[in-house]
Write a protein that binds this DNA or RNA. Structure first.
Lengths: 230, 230
DNA sequence: CGCTCCTTGATTGGATACAATCAATAGCAG
DNA sequence: CTGCTATTGATTGTATCCAATCAAGGAGCG
């Protein structure tokens, strides 16, 4: 439910390109040539241009005036900035969600959290698991959907889409301590929801997102060297 | 300083159209025809399309797939939603600004606040005053510039640009009580900055923005009837 | 040998032509 | 007079063409 519809083809296109960047199919720093994308999708350059512009305003790609677009290489301080803001907004979402989460939604939160946890354990054990389905974003999305503020939801989505690759899928997969931490923090949060404690829910969420941002920034710090060297 | 440059012509175009909407030159609910705007600016439809899409993602205009774009009619609950978020973000900006505002910036804040206050008094007295220069947005912009978080600044700008017409210029002009209130709240805020009180600055800002949002929502409520009847 | 300037190739930016879509309305049947 | 359908006009959506721009590389000069 985006407030203004726009154009279906262009929006789909933007979403597909975004997904390709997020999944790593189009790597960080790679150039995005309009003609190339156009032939690849079997359409003209015109809608591709608009889709790229859309991604540009989101900050996912960088457009140099007559030289083309590249997937943005996130600088750690940008990640920290974004997550400082995100912590505040998610805290607001959590506070608002306290009074709006019904029993079914609480159950869904628990289900998503445990499913995600068990899945990540299986992955860590080397087992091959289907990638789709539950993930970390879904947990948070459930909360800010419940918050019932569309503007808030839009801004959080925008922040989520600002950096390539999926936070949970990579950071959580690489580090078992963070995985445990993530699961426990989500559980505490659910407890606060059930208990109806607004301030506690907000504060827990703030802390949770802050530390997640710190982990992600570190991930990009480590990553940046490998990106540039090869 | 927008992080990604994009295209100068299109960005300027979007800014000009936005300004025309903000100032009321293009009224709320008016259709924005691509061909019309193109001839008006002496260019082709292509950049106009991109500029409109840009305004659309900002939420200022609404685009119906094959029927054209119109200036969005703000619904009061949307204003309330946006200002609830904005209150949180401006509170964060104020908290961060406490440690980063030097004496010169404090002096500038005071100057802008008093200048704005005196100007609004002269306007209320019926005097004709040049419209440009200091205004309410400038006061707030100074603060979130000082906050030193570019992402935060971008989001706040985005929120500011989401609704037609200038908040201060209209709401403050119409109501002397709000004018006094606004001036006093700004002064208190500056006191908190000078005293270095993080929590107080954040809380004052939160309250200040909240009440401003309430005023604006009321303004749109009253306005909506006149818009629809003619 | 190094520096400058010009050419050239690749790519985006803008203009225009054409197709698709939708709402309004006129015409017709019942 | 009412309801349905086909046509039409206006507008956006897409494709294609040409111009503008920039970086890289090579020729010529000091």
């Amino acid at each position: 439910m985006t407030t203004t519809d726009g154009n279906a083809l262009v929006d789909d296109l933007a979403a597909r390109i975004r997904a390709m960047i997020m999944s790593g199919e189009i790597p960080i720093g790679a150039p995005l040539r309009q003609a190339e994308l156009a032939t690849q999708f079997g359409i003209s350059r015109t809608p591709v241009r608009e889709a790229l512009r859309q991604l540009q305003t989101g900050g996912l790609i960088e457009v140099v005036p007559n030289r083309g677009a590249v997937v943005r290489v996130p600088v750690p301080w940008e990640v920290r900035e974004a997550y400082e803001v995100r912590a505040e907004l998610e805290a607001l979402a959590a506070r608002r969600a306290v009074d709006r989460l019904d029993d079914a939604s609480i159950a869904e939160l628990r289900a998503v959290n445990t499913a995600m946890y068990e899945r990540s354990i299986r992955i860590a054990a080397g087992e091959q698991v289907e990638t789709g389905g539950v993930d970390n974003d879904q947990f948070h999305t459930l909360i800010y959907r419940a918050a019932g503020n569309t503007r808030l939801g839009r801004l959080l989505t925008e922040l989520n889409d600002a950096f390539p690759r999926n936070v949970s899928a990579l950071v959580l997969r690489d580090n078992s301590r963070h995985r445990e931490e993530n699961f426990r923090e989500h559980e505490e949060l659910i407890e606060a929801f059930v208990a109806g404690e607004h301030d506690r829910a907000a504060e827990l969420m703030r802390q949770h997102v802050s530390s997640a941002g710190e982990h992600l920034a570190h991930w990009y710090e480590r990553r940046s060297s490998t990106v540039f060297t090869g």
